[in-house]
C-alpha cells in the first residue's frame, strides 16, 4: 500500500522519521569525530600518552553495560511484539537501571579526573602541552555530549514505560517503543566508537 490518509496510522513513516533523526545525531557526533581525527593526526604522540591516563577498566565495564542494555531494549521490543507485556516492562526496567549505572560510573570517572586537575581550562592541563589539552577537551566534550544523550534516552524509555502501563503502547501499536529503542541503540553505537578512540588506542 503506497498511500496513507490522515486518519490512518503510519508506523513505517514514524520509523523513517526516527531514522532520519538518527542520521542527524550521527552527523552531530560526526563533527566531533572529524575534530578528533584532525587533532589526533596533529598530536599523535601526545594523544597516545594522554590515552594512558584514562582508566581502561571503567571503560570496559561501561562498554559491557551499554552493550547489554542495548540487547535488553531490543528484547523489550520482541517481548511487546509477542504480547508479553510484563517481560517487556521488565526489560525496559533493566535497561534504565543499566543506563543509571553507566552514568554513575561516568560520574566517578569524571570526578577523579577533576581531582587530578584534569579539566578544561585547568592550570595543570595548560602545563601539559597542546596535545593533552586537545585530548582532554575532546574527551570531556564527546563523553559529555554522549552522557547527555544517555539522559535523554533514559527519559524517553521512562515515558515509554509509562505509556505501556497506560495501554497507549500495545502489541498492535508499538511504534513509539520501537523508536525509543532505536534512540537507545544510537547511544550504544556512538559509544562503540568512543571507547576504543579514548580508552584503548595508546
Amino acid at each position: 500500500m503506497e498511500t496513507i490518509t490522515n486518519v490512518h496510522r503510519d508506523d513505517e513513516a514514524s520509523k523513517l522519521g526516527m531514522w532520519l533523526f538518527i542520521f542527524t545525531e550521527i552527523l552531530l557526533f560526526g563533527g566531533l569525530f572529524i575534530v578528533y581525527s584532525i587533532y589526533r593526526f596533529n598530536n599523535a604522540v601526545a594523544f597516545h600518552l594522554a590515552g594512558e591516563e584514562l582508566n581502561d577498566t571503567i571503560g570496559i565495564i561501561n562498554t559491557v553495560i551499554l552493550l547489554t542494555s542495548s540487547m535488553t531494549v531490543a528484547m523489550s521490543l520482541t517481548a511487546m511484539q509477542k504480547g508479553n507485556i510484563r517481560l517487556c516492562l521488565g526489560m525496559i526496567a533493566v535497561t534504565v537501571l543499566l543506563g543509571l549505572v553507566f552514568l554513575t560510573n561516568k560520574y566517578f570517572e569524571w570526578g577523579i579526573k577533576f581531582e587530578h586537575g584534569l579539566y578544561p581550562g585547568s592550570a595543570f592541563l595548560k602545563e601539559l602541552g597542546h596535545g593533552d589539552i586537545m585530548f582532554f577537551g575532546l574527551y570531556f566534550m564527546m563523553t559529555g555530549l554522549h552522557a547527555l544523550h544517555i539522559i535523554v534516552g533514559l527519559t524517553i524509555l521512562v515515558v515509554v514505560a509509562v505509556f505501556i502501563r497506560k495501554g497507549r503502547i500495545r502489541p498492535d501499536k508499538y511504534a513509539f517503543l520501537e523508536n525509543g529503542g532505536l534512540y537507545w541503540h544510537l547511544v550504544d553505537l556512538i559509544w562503540i566508537f568512543l571507547f576504543p578512540l579514548f580508552y584503548l588506542i595508546h
Binding site: S70, M71, V73, A74, L182, H185, D188, L189, I192
Partner: peptide, 9 residues
C-alpha cells in the same frame, strides 16, 4: 556497529 545496526536496530 554493524552488528548493532543489523540486528538490534
Amino acid at each position: 556497529a554493524t552488528l548493532v545496526l543489523l540486528y538490534f536496530m
